[in-house]
Computed example of a mutant assay.
Amino acid sequence: MAITVKRDILVGLPLGDLVAYLEDFSRTEEWDPGTVRCVRVGEGPVREGAEWRNTSRFRGRTSELLYRLESREPGRLVFVGENRTVRATDDMTFTARSPTTTVVTYTASFRFKGLARLAAPFLRSEFERLGDDVAERLPTAAGRRRG
């Protein structure tokens, strides 16, 4: 069973600037309240296959996932993170609202593995709250990056 949370978030940045901001997954520290630390693995330009080691805190416990940029298109980014208990997918699609504003549709899906699957039905409300927190923090965090 997967838990999926979806939010449409209006951000005061042009589409290209917002994609450039979000494609560097290490910036999740700035806009995702669950992320404690996120560090790029390797060097070079961000492209499909780039990886980040993400440390998150959820319900008082810390866990580490290795995230990979699975898809990078002009209007869409897909990151997949995994460890032994969960596979997380962050799917972001972008729509220009005006020359200076963009709507990002942020969809986060969590598919639990093993015994962790049993807890999934009881965690939905906490993931919904995290989705609300992301929707609140992302516009401000991205706006700080304005050149």
Rank of each mutant, 00 (worst) to 15 (best):
I9Y: 01
L10P: 08
L10Y: 08
G12N: 14
G16N: 07
L18Q: 01
L22H: 01
E23S: 12
D24H: 02
S26H: 07
R27F: 07
W31G: 07
P33D: 09
P33Y: 05
P33R: 05
G34S: 14
G34Y: 09
G34K: 11
T35D: 11
V36W: 05
R37T: 09
R37L: 13
C38T: 11
R40N: 08
G42F: 05
G44L: 02
P45Y: 10
V46A: 09
G49Q: 07
A50C: 08
A50Y: 03
E51G: 08
E51H: 11
E51M: 15
E51S: 11
E51C: 13
W52G: 02
W52Y: 05
R53A: 13
R57C: 10
R59S: 06
E64Y: 06
L65T: 08
R68P: 07
L69I: 04
E70P: 03
R72T: 08
V78F: 05
G81A: 09
E82L: 10
R84F: 07
D90R: 09
D90F: 12
D91R: 07
D91I: 06
M92N: 06
R97P: 06
S98E: 00
P99R: 00
T100Q: 13
T101H: 07
T102P: 04
T107K: 05
R111M: 03
F112A: 00
K113Q: 09
K113Y: 01
K113R: 10
L115T: 01
R117W: 01
R124D: 12
R124H: 13
E126N: 14
E126D: 15
F127G: 01
F127P: 03
E128S: 08
R129I: 07
G131T: 05
D132E: 15
D132C: 08
A135M: 09
A135R: 04
R137Y: 08
T140I: 14
R145Q: 13
